[in-house]
Amino acid sequence: MHSDHASLKLKIAAAAGLLFLHLPIALIFVYAFTTEEKSFQWPPPGYTLKWFAATWDRPDVWEAMALSLKVAAISTLLAMLLGTLCAAAVSRTKFFGRESISLLVILPIALPGVVTGIALRSAFSIAEVPFSTWTIVLGHATFCVVIVYNNAVARFRRTSGSLIEASMDLGANLFQTLRHVILPNIATALVVGGMLAFALSFDEVIVTTFTAGQQQTLPIWMLEELVRPRERPVTNVVAMVVVLVTLLPILGAYYLTRGTEAVAGQGK
């Protein structure tokens, strides 16, 4: 028998599952307000807002935050440029080895971060590249490119190839075609890819540990901070910020991609 209403047991199980997924995150938020600073004691003995002020006054937080934003912004821009160009090449032209290129571009996201990280680290040391912001950016770009590439390729595939010819047929040169036809058609895919890439880069830990050298991005700073038994709730405040900074672009991407199927797929 089929029923339109889920049974009570199923509802409870679903609720338990969701709680298991999200309760720990809520706890992180709660500890940002605790008055106790050395251990994560439950329930918190009292509540305070002083950790927000404490976080505000910590220069190491600001440094890590600035580095994370900088790395995420540069890797995202790099990924948007390279990912889009690569997607255009793979979906617009036919050449020998096209499928292999496509696979090789996607591969970094399938590889464990540890492998990518070790590979990059040994590559950097063989090439005698000193660790810097740019080595972190390169590490992040390996998976950011994939995100943008995947979004752009999907959009290019759904966009009729004759649109470019139609534009040129109507008198537009390559630059005008890019501006008036290609960019408007792939814009949302690019923005979405960029937002997801930014979010991925902003909270990346594993690859960063291998490519960062002495610098600390925000997630690395948090990791280090956990072993220090002083001002622990500051970490929680930072965690809240990280969640917000990564969640907003993802939500934005979600809203932008809703309902674009009919528009972008319209070729015939």
């Binding site: 004759s162 047929d169 008036h180």
Partner: peptide, 30 residues
Amino acid sequence: YKRQVNTVFQDYALFPHLNVRDNVAYGLMI
């Protein structure tokens, strides 16, 4: 884009992001 010929494409190739008026006016806009 430098030839005085225009094409009606098999799949029509209308620009999905433009409305009908802007589609028709595209060549004039360019």
